[in-house]
């Protein structure tokens, strides 16, 4: 019985550890192709979230004050600062270097899209935002800011 227990524990460790390591490859700071922002992806309650940690132009040119989420459809949330804003939410690792079930928010138009993230290599992400079905969407390429060698 003891033998079986050790075998079972060892099996679980080997079976699930690589899956977790693969999933965590998404963690880090990434830059979208437009280069206007940097997004830090972290893991909270076993899901992945990304927040803006750097903006090329942190201040609104009109007011000179830090940029706000002025396009948010919820009137009460229009004064939330963009720095620190979580634009990627609720991603779950589904295997094969893909994270699904999440959403991406575009602060430039206040819209939220379904989203799939694919790790092309350790330093490149394909981020596909779509409405309804994946076919009708747009893919952006994000690069890791601190490159992994």
């Amino acid at each position: 019985m003891k033998k079986f227990f050790y075998f079972f524990t060892a099996f679980c460790l080997f079976a699930f550890a690589p899956q977790s390591n693969e999933a965590d490859k998404l963690i880090g700071v990434w830059e979208p192709s437009h280069g206007k922002a940097r997004v830090k992806i972290d893991k909270i309650a076993d899901k992945f979230y990304g927040k803006i940690v750097w903006l090329r132009e942190p201040n609104d040119p009109a007011s000179g004050l830090p940029k706000l989420d002025k396009n948010n459809p919820d009137e009460s949330m229009k004064k939330v600062p963009l720095k620190g804003y979580r634009i990627l939410k609720d991603f779950v690792y589904s295997g094969n270097k893909e994270w699904t079930e999440g959403t991406i928010y575009d602060p430039e138009n206040g819209s939220t899209y379904s989203c799939v993230i694919k790790l092309k290599d350790d330093n490149t992400l394909d981020i596909r935002g779509y409405v309804g079905i994946k076919t009708f969407g747009r893919t952006d390429i994000w690069k890791r800011v601190q490159l992994k060698k």
Binding site: I44, A45, D46, K47, Y49, L68, M77, K79, V80, P81, G84, Y85, R86, K89, D90, T103
Partner: peptide, 18 residues
């Protein structure tokens, strides 16, 4: 900015102060 989340539910923004 304050949000709530859980394994079985999506993250929701509930409050902020700026």
């Amino acid at each position: 900015t304050l949000q709530l989340t859980a394994k079985s539910a999506d993250m929701q923004k509930i409050a902020f102060l700026n």
